[in-house]
Amino acid sequence: MTVRLAIPALILLAVAAIPFAAPSLQLLMNLALAKGIAVVGVTVLLRAGQVSFGHALFFAIAAYAAAFLSASMPGADLVLVLVVAVAGAAISGVLVGLFVVRYRGIFFGMLNLAFSMIFWSILEKFYHYTGGADGIRLPRPTVFGMALERGPFELIMFYLSLALVILLGWFTVRWFASPSGQLFQTIKTNETRLQYLGVSPQRALLTGYVLSAALCGVGGVIMGIVQGVVTPEFAWWIRSGEMVFIAVLGGAGSVAGAFVGAAIYEIVRTYASAFAGDIWQMLLGGFLLVIVIFAPKGVIGIYDATLARLTGTRANDGETRK
């Protein structure tokens, strides 16, 4: 048990030391943290047995909301930008959610994809407002009224992202264990019983859907601010697919797995793109097949099994799923 907790704590400390110990990795790791938060959003839905191929939608909505706000209110504060962006993602989550929670499985996955494609083509076609394929700039927000230079601002964004990872990760794990989170997860196993408990499965799914949209929004707005520009690519299906991929790679349904998966993914991508840029999707697809067919519990499942073998105890089933 202590080993189980000690290793994640050490990893977090190592990440926190990156800006000083390995500054060249700072930006990369910050993007991984942002992506990790968004992936937790996809993970939430996997807990209810649903997969969305369009969650980049909320990623993009938050990023564009931040960009529009910054354009109309130059020098807007970071906190305000974050709040507005995430609120935008959550509200869109309610609106899209009201529609898609009536569906499961194939329809759920594909309708989410359809919504993200619609948004993507709006971003591309209505270029008077959205800047088209080039996107729009997202100027650096002020921090508590101070206009910061690039260095300190990036440092603040890094630690803010790390803090959000810990806070939101903790919140999501706690919510999974709470009555409302447990009701949400029963969507996966028995909706008939859920109805006969007097609960609307649609409502239960919507709760989790809005949470997942908000999490994707947090990831999207951080990504937009750190990169300084938002493009339709934020909503593109490949990004949605990437999120699903990372969630499954880390361990379908595991919050810690989402972050581990995101970190592994970003690091491998950065170093592999030099010699495997052309076949990147292919590598992802191949890897996804291997995980789904041979290691459905992902990296976290392998971690649990290894620990169990080392300590000679049964793997903790709390985080992993059948």
Binding site: V51, G105, V248, D278, G285, V292
Partner: peptide, 21 residues
């Protein structure tokens, strides 16, 4: 169903790059 979707989605990703190659 989710796993089935993931498998065909993975094939989709692979074939997209095959075309490009």
């Amino acid at each position: 169903e989710v796993l089935q979707l993931l498998v065909t989605f993975a094939v989709f990703m692979i074939l997209e790059d095959v075309q490009r190659l």
